[in-house]
Amino acid sequence: MPQSSTDRVFGRFLEPLLPTEEYLTINFSPTSGSRKEYWRNNGISADFLGDYFSSFFPISEDTQAKIDKRNEIKSMVSFIANELLENAMKYSEQNFRLPVTISLHLYEQELVFIAANYAHLTTIATYQEFIQEIISSDIDDLYLRQMEKAATGESGSSMGLLTMINDYNADLGWKFVSLSDKPEVSKVIIMVRLKV
């Protein structure tokens, strides 16, 4: 994708991605299906990614470990992929029927998720404010503040991203790419990196 002067990057967004043999991309094209069916697909796809990628990891021989490596990977991938898909679906611009995609790339020491959707500029402005807050805050403090906020029902989806960082040690980066033919919409790409 050519870099335009209006593209913006936040956090650690690696480009280009190093090549790997093991990756998987799922593309969701908008259909007339109900919102509920759509939502159900998030869970099914996230579980599939978790199952598929965990098969590259050994079943732990350490009998003392409560959760073996394979199950750990499966649960981590499933949780993170589900959150990324929920966010992408929730904040996609509905008027243009543009797709949502999620890719997962496996490297020797990390897993890299890339999720993309198209959102309206007003949605993006709010999102970028929150991203700035994530980048400039102490995550521990922000997590607690957002939990208190969530309790009043006003935090939106912010707990998903914060949980990835705070509880799973994920490293996040974002890229916003403007579209020349649709000035009110941009492509939102989030990269989540997990040490494995």
């Binding site: 869970g43 499933s78 949780f79 589900n82 959150e83 929920e86 939990m147 208190e148 969530a150 309790a151 009043t152 029902g153 935090s155 989806s157 707990m159 998903g160 949980t163």
Partner: peptide, 17 residues
């Protein structure tokens, strides 16, 4: 087995109640 972040927020809300 599984709880998404909206569910974690619900538990936070319950704890605060």
């Amino acid at each position: 087995e599984f709880l998404n972040s909206s569910g974690i927020s619900m538990l936070s809300m319950f704890v605060i109640k």
